[in-house]
Structures are given as C-alpha cells and as structure tokens.
Design a protein around this nucleic acid. Structure first.
Lengths: 202, 202
DNA sequence: CGTGACCGACCGACTGGTCGGTCGGTTGAT
DNA sequence: ATCAACCGACCGACCAGTCGGTCGGTCACG
C-alpha cells in the first residue's frame, strides 16, 4: 500500500527530530537515524535524497505546526492586539513543553553553509511575517499607534527566541515564568494611540 | 623577539575573523586561514592547538571588544537608564558597521557540537549580564519599576540579536534605521514608577 | 488455481573525497 | 650551536552517498 510509504517517512521524520535535537546536525549520522528507525542506510536513502533534505523537512514540519497553533490561538480572540498576545503565549507555551523540538527549530543546523542559512531566513521570515501581520492589524484597528512593524516584529521574534534558547541551554528561567514578563515588556512597548484617533475600518 | 609571536597570532586571528565571516566555521578550512596569513598549515598549528580553539579565540576577542565599547558608552552617561539606552545604540551602531564580524559573533559556529553550544551560553551570558546590570541599576535608582531583569535582559538581547541577524542575511532594515524603533519599543516597555516611589540608596 | 514476471521497499558492505592534524626537516637570528 | 618559528608532504579517520542484491507481495494470464 502507498500508506506504508508515508508511515515510514513519518517514522524517519520523527526519529530525525529527536536525533537532531539530541546531537545537532553534524553530529547526527545518517546511520544514527537509520538505527533509530530500524532501517538500513540504504532504506533511508530510498525515502530521502540526502541528509540535508531530511533536515529541512524536519524544520518545515515543526515550523508549520507552530505557525498553525499560533494563528489558531490568535483567531480565537476578538481584537488583533489580544490575538497577538495570545499567539505569543501559545508559542512560548508550546516550545516550553518540548525542549528538544525547540532546539531543532531555533538552534540546530543554522549557520553551516548557505543552504542552511537560506532556510533560517525562510523560517524566521515566516514567523516574523505572522507577527507583523498581527501588529499591522492592531495598528489598523487603532489599538496601537502606527510604528515600523517590520522592526518591531523582528524584535518580538528575537526576544522570544532568546528566552527560549536560553532556557534550552540553561534550563531556566522556564518559559512559563518568563511569559508574563515578556508580555508586559513587549506589549507594553507599544504606544497606545491618543484619544483623538479612532479605528478607520477599510 | 617575543613581540613577533604576538603579531603573527594577531594576523591569524584577523584572517580567521574574515574567513569565518565569509564562509562559516565548517566551510572554512585550516588551509584557507593559513593561506590568508601567508603561513603554512604547520605554521598555523605552531600558534594554535586546534581549529576549534582558534574559533573560540576569535569569538572571545570580538565579544570583549563589543562589551568594552558598550560599557564605555554607558559610563559616559549620567543615569543608569540613559546608560542602557546609550549602550544599546553603541552596540547596534558598532555591529551595523561590520556585517561580517557581526555574523561571526552572532551566527556562525554555534550549534555544531557541545563545545560550541557552551561557548554560545558563555558569550550570550556575558552580554545578558551587562544588560541586566544596567537594568538593575535603573531599578535601584528608581528610574523604572521593579521587574524580572533576568528575563527582560534576555528579551533585549534577543531583540537586538534578531534585528542584526536579519540585517546580516537580508541587508535590510539597516541597524541605523531600526535603532530608534528598537529604543522606543524596548525602553518604552519598561514601566515608569509611580510618583510615590523614590530611590532608596543602599 | 498455479506460476512467473515485475516492483516497491529495504539491505549493508563498500567507496571516495575531504580535511584536521602530524612530523621530520629547514631557516635565520642570537 | 641552539632554538623558536615555520614549512608542506603526508596520514588516516570519518561519513555521506552508492550499488548490486534480497525479499515479499501482487497481478496478468492460461
């Protein structure tokens, strides 16, 4: 059956997630992944054209999962600003629950050649775009004053990233503890518009 | 003379900075560095015990230079909060002027084995400590309300890091353009104490 | 039903290029 | 003569990727 093929592919992806999280890209051998999958190296290469392709597939899967969760959380809110706030919480919470996956997504594998750097740009660009979109809508709705949302979205992304990465490496402070502080500081850094401005719905 | 030895070492460090900035750790060969120094591979190994050691020496040098500049900028200010603000500007400006060096310091080489990860923890920890120290003093001076400065310092560090890294990869927005926005958002995220509170000198 | 051609999935020994590191030797200043 | 500084051919571990082969299923056909 064709479903078997998909199943094996998923098993490989799963094993690779863990392996990359444990040892990083370079220190993970294709033989390790084959071993964790109870597959031979040749069997692995039947499903993926290269180790690099596998890594990118792992990243893509993690990134799209995370983005979806964030957007769903935002969608459950009434205002754009509350949505951005909820998405922030969702991301911190999700990543905070799975340290190794966070490590793969945020740390491992970037900066080891141009293909990897390009992937970094792509993935972080997607995240930044989601944040920026939320901020733009908050501006449009008159919840916050107009501001350069490109820079601000990068700042939010960077702040979240660093808090998570620091926790990954040092185990503290826990994302759940950092969350309220982060919300206060990031959301608080946005200026509320003065009363003479009101929402201009397009 | 013993000074000759130091000179050659510096030449290697200089060449390595550029090489790592151009091609990253793994893609830079020891032969490349030897070549750029007009030294043989053997000559290089007379000065450094390993490629990894060289990389760490490069990082240490860059990190201490940057920290010194930031602290000097802060020291020229009258209040702690103004100092933090000035240090933020100094760092953005300095890194913004030398893209390749910023790349080595902020991106290249991390996440490729536990020794590298440890270095990341160390260097970023130093930066975070400097920021946290500034924030602590601003709290102490009553310029801002008490807050978890550990988390906030990480957030600042992460925000700056991401803005720079994004610029490194995409060339825009320029750090000089991002700076005012970043100042507004980060410094603005700190709550001013209400009037009933005053500095309690220790 | 039997059978044999065919194929997708998988195996694992092997290869071949790469590159960090070594080592015996040379040079030039004191 | 001595030794710090440097040379560069060479070594060998490492590992992604290959390739000839196995094996169980399945499908067309008599």
């Amino acid at each position: 059956m064709a479903v078997q093929r998909e199943t094996t592919r998923d098993r490989i992806l799963e094993a690779a997630e863990n392996a990359f999280g444990d040892k990083g890209y370079h220190e993970t051998l294709v033989d390790d992944i084959a071993g964790r999958t109870s597959l031979s190296k040749g069997g692995f290469y039947f499903h993926f054209p290269s180790k690099e392709d596998l890594f990118f597939a792992v990243i893509d899967r993690l990134a799209s999962r995370l983005t979806r969760r964030a957007e769903e959380a935002a969608g459950r809110c009434e205002s754009p600003l509350a949505g951005a706030d909820a998405a922030l919480s969702e991301v911190l919470t999700t990543l905070g629950r799975r340290r190794r996956l966070a490590k793969v997504l945020l740390v491992q594998g970037y900066s080891m050649g141009s293909a990897f750097e390009q992937k970094r740009v792509e993935v972080f660009g997607q995240f930044a775009a989601v944040i920026q979109d939320g901020l733009d809508r908050a501006v449009e709705a008159g919840e916050i004053s107009p501001i350069d949302t490109e820079v601000v979205s990068r700042a939010w992304l960077g702040a979240v990233n660093e808090v998570i990465v620091n926790w990954i490496y040092r185990g503290t402070p826990a994302p759940s503890d950092a969350l309220p502080v982060l919300r206060k500081v990031l959301v608080g850094g946005l200026e509320r518009p003065t009363a003479d401005r009101e929402a201009s719905n397009g």
